[in-house]
Simulated assay, not measured.
Amino acid sequence: MRILVTGTAGFVGSALAERLLVRGDEVHGIDNHNDYYDPALKEARLARFAGHPRYTHQRADLADGEAVEQAFASFQPQRVANLAAQAGVRYSLKNPQSYVRSNLVGFTHILEACRHHAVEHLVYASSSSVYGANRKLPFSVEDPVDHPVSLYAASKKANELMAHTYSHLFGLPTTGLRFFTVYGPWGRPDMSPMLFADRISRGEPIDVFNFGNHSRDFTYIDDIVEGVIRTLDHVAQPDPSHDVEQPNPGSSQAPYRVYNIGNDQPVQLLRFIELMEQNLGRSVEKRLLPMQPGDVPDTWADVSALRRDVGYAPNTSIEEGVRRFVAWYREYHHLP
């Protein structure tokens, strides 16, 4: 198939593009290569497949509507995976405008282009952060998500609402995937696994918020990519059992779906750090600190709907995932 992927210099986007090329798809990638974190890492990710004969790359910002339209008009994608976004919870406290440009304006351009170019299926990245202040665990797509605690989370919830509007009005099949703490080789430097690895490798103390009482549904990158591909291949359909008097937030009378995509096995943050220390061969001081603004105590994905509909089955244990991540980290940073 011809699949347009946004964010192909990013963590998940690059891994997805590589896998799609391996299975024989034609991929057009879009990324703005911004400097939210080290652009050299983004270039290194792209270098893995940028010269592939079935890959074309466009350096553009989704907030540039003409550039997005040009990509759709020239490539004529059958399906779209929108993984580009301004990421990060804490950064949204400092630079809210970037979230509006990328996650709201940019996503509107993607929706419009999908609508006008008869795209068969749009799969887009949402986030576990939409659950906000929820304390009922595990998080289910049937739970209300009306109390976000960061602008990033609010922008992702807005994406789900915008997608439903286009599914309802124009029959555009859309599926949102709420990602849960993705980690692994080529990961983001602003996320905790890379921050922990940096500090441990240098022997520096680690700030552990919520006094170490956090737990996260860490999900290995290969399991995430497998779920995204299965979802792309499974075009959203109207839910025949949808009850308008008691609506299910995860489905609709329109061709619309929202799923959690996680490991369904939350891990205490201190246990994750312990595994990192074991694999890096050194221990460091842990400074236990209060909760940060915009953060949540625990995440845990109920992935039963994704298992049921696309056969999603994450199978990378936290021990194996951390081992692979640290092996890559050592190689990338030329550590012994």
Rank of each mutant, 00 (worst) to 15 (best):
D217W: 02
N210L: 04
M191G: 15
T175G: 08
Q268Y: 09
P297V: 13
F218N: 12
E245L: 12
A254W: 13
R282Q: 01
A236N: 03
L161W: 03
Q265I: 11
V182E: 08
F218I: 05
T299A: 01
P297H: 10
R282N: 03
T165L: 12
L269D: 02
G176P: 02
P266K: 06
H214Q: 15
R271M: 12
A154S: 10
L280P: 07
V244H: 09
A236P: 11
P185A: 13
G203K: 07
Y256F: 09
Y259G: 07
N210G: 15
N213D: 09
H242M: 15
P290Q: 10
K286C: 02
E285Y: 11
H242D: 04
Q292V: 10
P189G: 06
L275W: 06
D264T: 08
Y183C: 04
Q268W: 13
V225N: 03
L275H: 05
F196Y: 15
E160M: 00
Y220E: 10
F272Q: 07
Q246G: 14
M194T: 13
I273P: 03
P173N: 10
G203F: 09
G227R: 07
R188I: 12
V208K: 00
T181P: 11
D190W: 03
T299Y: 03
D295P: 01
G176D: 14
S283I: 14
T181K: 14
E245V: 13
V296R: 11
S241L: 13
D217E: 02
S192I: 14
L177M: 12
P266T: 09
I229W: 04
H234V: 09
E285S: 10
V228Q: 10
G212T: 15
H234G: 15
D223G: 00
L169I: 04
T231I: 09
R178S: 00
S192M: 11
E204N: 01
D239M: 08
Q253G: 14
L270C: 13
S283R: 11
G176E: 05
F218V: 14
V235T: 08
F218G: 14
Q265N: 13
Q292N: 15
L195C: 09
I221A: 08
G184Q: 04
D295G: 01
T181A: 05
D264F: 14
V244C: 15
H164M: 15
R282E: 01
Y152S: 03
